[in-house]
Computed example of a mutant assay.
Amino acid sequence: MAPGRTLARDLALPLGAVGAALLVTALMLTGQGAPSPVAPVAFLLLTVAVSALARPVVVPVVALVSWLFYDGFVLNGHSDLAFRAQDRTSLLMLLLAAAAGACGAAALRTVRRRSAG
């Protein structure tokens, strides 16, 4: 295995997609769908966590996958995607969450390298 490669970084995107599917299922089963503030917060937290594990090049894809599940199943229901103001806002929020997760992970790696070296 090459230096800096970990299984978590390689599998972050597929595991994030599975996590988003499970999150949608859990939200639908508990009734915490679109009107509830729980759904966007849960997706933001999931996106931050997965982005922190993912390779920087796939971070935008992580946000896009989260948005596809959130917009298609929670916000609009019945797997309908839309591009109204609330849909664009949720995409922007998830992209910012992904960037925050990636930046936080990069900062942590930098601190670890400096303290180890």
Rank of each mutant, 00 (worst) to 15 (best):
M1W: 09
A2E: 11
A2H: 11
A2F: 08
P3W: 10
P3S: 12
G4S: 11
R5H: 13
T6K: 02
L7Y: 01
L7G: 00
L7F: 08
A8W: 05
L11C: 08
A12W: 00
L13H: 08
L15M: 11
L15H: 05
L15R: 13
L15E: 05
G16K: 06
A17S: 11
A17T: 08
V18W: 05
V18R: 11
V18L: 15
G19P: 04
G19M: 08
A20Q: 02
A21V: 09
A21K: 11
A21Q: 13
L22M: 14
L22W: 09
V24Y: 03
V24I: 07
T25D: 12
L27M: 08
M28L: 15
G31H: 10
A34K: 13
A34R: 15
P35M: 12
S36M: 02
P37N: 09
P37L: 13
V38W: 10
A39F: 04
P40R: 06
V41Y: 06
V41R: 14
L45F: 11
L46N: 01
L46W: 02
T47Y: 02
T47M: 03
T47E: 01
V48C: 02
A49T: 12
A49N: 03
A49P: 00
A49K: 03
A49L: 15
A49Y: 04
V50S: 02
V50Y: 03
V50R: 04
S51N: 06
S51Y: 02
A52R: 05
A52I: 03
L53W: 01
R55P: 00
P56M: 11
P56W: 08
P56T: 10
P56S: 11
V57I: 11
V59C: 02
P60K: 06
V61E: 09
V61G: 00
V62R: 00
A63R: 04
L64G: 03
V65K: 00
V65Q: 03
S66E: 04
W67V: 07
W67Q: 09
L68F: 13
F69T: 00
F69V: 02
Y70V: 05
Y70H: 07
D71I: 01
D71M: 01
N76H: 11
N76K: 09
N76C: 04
G77S: 12
G77D: 05
G77T: 04
G77E: 12
H78V: 06
D80I: 14
D80W: 12
L81G: 07
L81Q: 14
A82V: 02
F83Y: 12
F83R: 11
R84I: 00
A85H: 09
D87G: 15
D87C: 08
D87H: 12
R88N: 10
L91V: 05
L91H: 06
L92M: 13
M93Q: 15
L94Y: 07
L94W: 02
L95M: 13
L95A: 14
L96A: 15
L96E: 07
A97E: 06
A97W: 03
A100V: 13
A100W: 06
G101Y: 00
A102S: 15
C103D: 06
C103E: 10
G104H: 05
A105F: 05
A106I: 09
A107S: 14
A107F: 10
R109I: 01
T110Q: 15
T110R: 15
T110A: 15
V111A: 15
V111S: 07
R113K: 15
R113L: 14
R113V: 10
R114P: 01
R114W: 14
S115Y: 08
S115F: 10
S115E: 13
A116F: 04
G117L: 13
G117V: 10
G117K: 12
